[in-house]
Design a protein around this nucleic acid. Structure first.
Lengths: 105, 105
DNA sequence: GTCGCTCCGGTCGATCGTCTATGGGAGTAG
DNA sequence: CTACTCCCATAGACGATCGACCGGAGCGAC
């Protein structure tokens, strides 16, 4: 996966509502038509990283399968961050595409 | 910059003809409207990496400023690799965008 | 009851790519 | 001969991802 993108994907996923790790990973994989794979070893460090930066907040709950699960929700700062990172992502993609597909000058 | 993208950008730049490090960096920066910045410390490791993989080949020459410069050209394998990586890039971008911009289901 | 499976959270070490900083040689202009 | 630019190069740190582990706890089959 592309470096730095996971944080963005997680934030976006949480816009739709609080969720726990497993659900977040599945949502990303499903919505990307299984192109993006979210490994455990990447997911949890990312979640902790985002929580440290106060972009998401967590609380313990019970999953739909009656299992103990840590739920995450987007904070106000996280929402702001999501907008910034989405913009940054778009700019980068456009920049790379300009290089990849040269137009006649 | 996005991880792994630099290799792709370099390969694409060399499609237009052989060039040395400085020129490659400037070309990428210029064609991306200065959004992408190519640092020396990233460029040369990338060039050596690509050469190790035989996707580019190098030879010593003289720059337009009469300076000793190492020129790089795309190999056949590099051209093939460019096509593959471009496809991979497109797939990833589309996948991320699907997650970022949810359509009604 | 207990065995095995799935769900859920977590960590650790290795790896990879980038960045900052530093260095040096060689041409050029004053 | 000094200063500046061009060009190549490397070293150390950092940040993010990955693969491989480990633990617990619910659940269904037998």
């Amino acid at each position: 996966m592309l470096q730095g993108t996971l944080d963005l994907l997680i934030l976006q996923t949480l816009v739709l509502g609080s969720a726990h790790g497993h659900t977040i990973a599945h949502a990303i994989e499903h919505r990307s038509d299984d192109v993006l794979q979210v490994e455990h070893g990447s997911l949890y460090p990312a979640l902790h990283r985002l929580e440290d930066r106060a972009w998401i907040a967590s609380f313990w709950g019970t999953s739909e399968n009656n299992r103990r699960a840590r739920y995450y929700r987007l904070t106000a700062a996280g929402r702001k961050q999501l907008a910034e990172q989405t913009g940054r992502w778009d700019r980068l993609v456009q920049a790379v595409n300009r290089v990849l597909r040269p137009v006649e000058e």
